[in-house]
């Protein structure tokens, strides 16, 4: 690993940590405007994290070490996910450490820990949230894997850096399979990030919650880590989607000259993506929980269609 590659990797992680709450703030801001209200400050998520790190931690009676340990695991998983997803450059030293399948596994590990921690205290809403999260998870993960297999077949590799490199700098070609995969990925991202058709991140009604219901017992710095991890997850999914389906502007080298033009391109794409997410959340109503399997089933169907199109129609290369 060269020094400049290590520096680029470090920069990518620092960028994810710093930008992730900003993306959440931007989505909240757009959503407030679409609700005809004056928006909270763009930096509101940072104020929230700052406040939570200044608060005490209150633990429920009977909370096991798993409960206090889980936020660190979840945060670590999301940080590692952000480290291997190409945000600015595809030349990342960490990329060979985990391929796309391992990336899905990382998200799965985080989900497992947060669901276990939710059940650990033994409150009714924690149990309910944990079980709903697993329901969403086992439907979303296969669809995500199918999307990834489609892109892996195009580039003949499961390494995420190679995939993005092929899509961004390979010979120009239009892949119909990617259109199907893109729709499936959008559905999965909405479900995985607890967004409106499946879950509502701004809800106060315990009976409709999925992600919120699992973190009801957390407070102080634990809650801060979980909120930050949720922002990082949204950032990771956004960057993954942008890298797979809109890979223009990602640098191929780790030199400063390559990274600098990639930064405004990423910022512009994230801003557009965040605004689109807020619009989707505004014009859609939340689905009944038992309709979520249909929603994710159609995501899986689209992903399989993409894979079939790739195998049957595009396989001449």
């Amino acid at each position: 690993m060269s020094a400049s590659a290590a520096l680029a990797q470090f920069f990518a992680i620092a960028l994810a940590l710093a930008l992730a709450p900003l993306l959440t703030g931007w989505v909240n801001m757009c959503r407030a405007w679409l609700q005809n209200r004056k928006a909270p400050p763009l930096l509101q998520p940072y104020y929230l994290l700052h406040k939570l790190f200044h608060k005490d931690v209150v633990l429920a009676r009977g909370a096991s070490p798993l409960f206090t340990f889980a936020p660190y695991v979840v945060f670590g998983c999301m940080l590692l996910a952000c480290a291997i997803i190409p945000t600015l450059s595809t030349d990342l030293p960490f990329a060979p450490a985990a391929d796309t399948i391992a990336l899905v596994g990382l998200f799965g590990l985080a989900r497992l820990f947060i669901a276990l921690a939710a059940m650990d205290v033994g409150t009714g809403f924690g149990m309910l949230g944990g079980r709903r999260e697993m329901l969403i998870g086992f439907l979303a993960e296969p669809a995500l894997l199918m999307v990834i297999f489609t892109t892996a077949l195009i580039s003949q590799s499961t390494s995420i850096a190679t995939i993005v490199d092929t899509l961004a700098r390979g010979p120009f070609a239009i892949y119909p399979s990617l259109a199907f995969a893109g729709v499936a990925f959008a559905f999965v991202s909405l479900a995985e990030n607890a967004r409106v058709p499946v879950d509502n991140p701004a809800t106060h009604l315990e009976l409709t919650m999925i992600h919120e219901a699992m973190v009801l017992e957390y407070s102080g710095r634990h809650l801060a880590l979980i909120e930050w991890a949720a922002s990082l997850k949204l950032f990771a999914y956004s960057c993954l989607g942008l890298a797979l389906f809109f890979p223009w502007g990602i640098a191929g080298s780790d030199s400063l000259a390559g990274l600098l033009p990639a930064l405004p391109a990423l910022a512009a794409k994230l801003a557009a993506g965040g605004a689109l997410l807020a619009l989707v959340e505004t014009v859609n109503a939340k689905l009944r929980i038992f309709r979520a399997p249909e929603f994710l089933g159609s995501a899986f169907l689209f992903a399989v269609l993409g894979l079939l199109v790739r195998l049957l129609l595009e396989n001449q290369a």
Binding site: Q44, Y47, S219
Partner: peptide, 21 residues
């Protein structure tokens, strides 16, 4: 509601006393 708009001041209602100030 959007008229009084508590959210615009960065203040929100939460579902758990553990999250509350």
């Amino acid at each position: 509601n959007p008229y009084v708009n508590l959210e615009g001041y960065g203040i929100r209602f939460v579902a758990s006393p553990r999250h509350a100030d």
